[in-house]
Simulated scan of single mutants.
Amino acid sequence: MVKKKKDMEKVAALDNEYTKEQYAEFQKQQKQLIFRRRRLTVVFLAAFVIFVFSGIQLVKDYSQLNSFKKQHAQVVKESAEVDKKVKRLEQDVALLNDDDYVAKLARDRFDVSKEGEQIYSIPDLNKASSYNSEQQSTEESQSQSHSSEQ
């Protein structure tokens, strides 16, 4: 390769019309080649920018989809809890429509008895039942305050 360059330096170019035309044609082809390469580079850069932008948008959409899925799962769970609470409240309403149950509930809460009925108060059971009712009311108030915060 080095030897060919030295040999080419020893060759003199002819200064005639044909060589000038060939040299001009060669220069024109070189300019067209450079123009094509630049145009191809611009097209590839534009495509690269579009793909990068699309990729970034795709990643954002995917993360947003995941957050929506988490939200959906949470809402479904809360909905199931609310459905259970509604069923329990409907049962309570159904019981409150029963006169015997309401009378028994009133007698229990106010320590009143029917004629001929005897009440035996057992301290441990009364504490446990009052503790359970207090615990349920505390849980309900906490769930209501939690729901209102959101």
Rank of each mutant, 00 (worst) to 15 (best):
Lys87Ile: 02
Ile122Leu: 10
Lys31Phe: 04
Ala47Ile: 11
Leu45Lys: 13
Leu65Ala: 10
Leu105Thr: 00
Val42Pro: 00
Leu96Ala: 08
Ile34Arg: 00
Ala80Asp: 11
Asp83Gly: 07
Leu40Tyr: 13
Val75Thr: 08
Lys70Ile: 00
Lys85Arg: 13
Leu125Glu: 14
Gln71Ile: 09
Val112Ile: 11
Lys28Leu: 04
Ile50Gln: 12
Tyr62Phe: 06
Lys31Thr: 05
Ile119Gln: 06
Ser129Glu: 15
Val86Gln: 07
Phe26Arg: 15
Phe51Asp: 10
Leu95Trp: 09
Leu105Gln: 02
Gln32Arg: 12
Asp108His: 05
Val49Gly: 08
Phe51Cys: 11
Phe51Gly: 10
Tyr131Trp: 15
Lys85Phe: 01
Leu95Gly: 02
Phe51Gln: 09
Gln136Pro: 00
Lys127Ser: 05
Lys114Met: 03
Ile56Lys: 00
Asp124Pro: 00
Leu65Ser: 12
Pro123Leu: 07
Ser63Gly: 07
Asn126Gln: 14
Asp108Tyr: 08
Val93Lys: 03
Ile50Tyr: 05
Lys31Val: 11
Ser67Ala: 15
Phe44Cys: 11
Lys84Met: 00
Val42Arg: 14
Gln71Pro: 00
Phe51Tyr: 08
Pro123Ile: 11
Lys84Asp: 05
Lys104Glu: 08
Ser129Ile: 10
Gln74Arg: 10
Ser121Gly: 03
